[in-house]
């Protein structure tokens, strides 16, 4: 690997005081950014500079910074989680950029994800979809059966596990030209639909989750496939097809 070097960049960042304020793109110059730093560390560096200049730092979401919590977001140079693939923004590194680059940073844009401040959006619409059906009801009074005592075909278990890898980051919504949440909901429906524990409530689950999804104002999937490509967890379009099958089955019941 080539040694780290320092680059100078120009940033164009969406600034918005609060949910009701009118925002705009602002331009910042940032010098001496190490290509070994992560994208979020670069933003930390910018915020330090802003604080030193007695300016308001840029608000952005982050938590684990290791690609597993789904908290970080950011639409970078026209792509959700930036130019690399299979990663969240916290896993994006500055070595993906060159000296003199201009980098656009915008919040997820969706009616269902209103901007809270700057680059922070409210993704609680996803929580409400989950609450509408993304669970299995189990008796937790102390006599819970070990999940592994139910035999499950390996193929189903693998597919359910792959669907469950969704971290709810919302990149699928952000990148979809229709602001559709179907990859997320497809994954959440699939992770249960494939398992015997999930079959019991399958009918109500898919109907309720899709109804909630529509009520939140997400758009309709047109199968462009953009979500699948930008999803940091490689969630496949097969999950949307499975949701469509589940919904058909549930509707005909």
């Amino acid at each position: 690997m080539s040694a780290a070097k320092n680059i100078n960049i120009t940033l164009k960042i969406w600034r918005q005081k609060n949910a009701n304020a009118k925002g705009s793109m602002e331009t910042y110059k940032l010098d001496n950014v190490s290509t070994a730093s992560s994208f979020l560390e670069m933003l930390d560096q910018l915020n330090e500079q802003l604080i030193n200049e007695k300016k308001e730092p840029v608000a952005f979401d982050h938590d684990c910074r290791e690609g597993i919590c789904g908290m970080c977001s950011l639409y970078i140079n026209g792509r959700a989680h930036g130019p690399d693939s299979g990663i969240t923004t916290c896993q994006l590194h500055m070595r993906m950029f060159k000296d003199g680059d201009t980098i656009y940073i915008e919040p997820w844009r969706s009616k269902a994800f209103p901007v809270v401040k700057d680059l922070v959006v409210d993704r609680s619409a996803f929580d409400r979809i989950q609450q509408a059906g993304g669970f299995v009801s189990v008796n937790t009074s102390g006599n819970t059966i070990d999940a592994n005592s139910i035999p499950i075909p390996k193929d189903d278990a693998d597919k359910a596990f792959m669907a469950a890898a969704c971290i709810g980051c919302g990149a699928c919504v952000a990148t979809c030209k229709n602001g559709s949440a179907m990859l997320f909901v497809g994954a959440k429906v699939s992770q249960y639909a494939l398992l015997p524990q999930g079959k019991v409530e399958a009918t109500q689950r898919v109907l309720n989750m899709v109804r909630q999804m529509d009520e939140e104002g997400f758009g309709n999937c047109t199968n462009t496939g953009a979500c699948e490509i930008e999803c940091p967890k490689g969630i496949s379009l097969e999950n949307i097809a499975r949701m469509n099958r589940e919904y058909l089955k549930a509707s005909l019941k």
Binding site: N77, E106, K177, G217, T224, A226
Partner: peptide, 16 residues
């Protein structure tokens, strides 16, 4: 309507 504010910079050819 699902995206009332559009992006300043897009790169749709990258994924569709």
């Amino acid at each position: 309507k699902a995206r009332p504010v559009s992006y300043a910079k897009t790169n749709p050819a990258a994924n569709s």
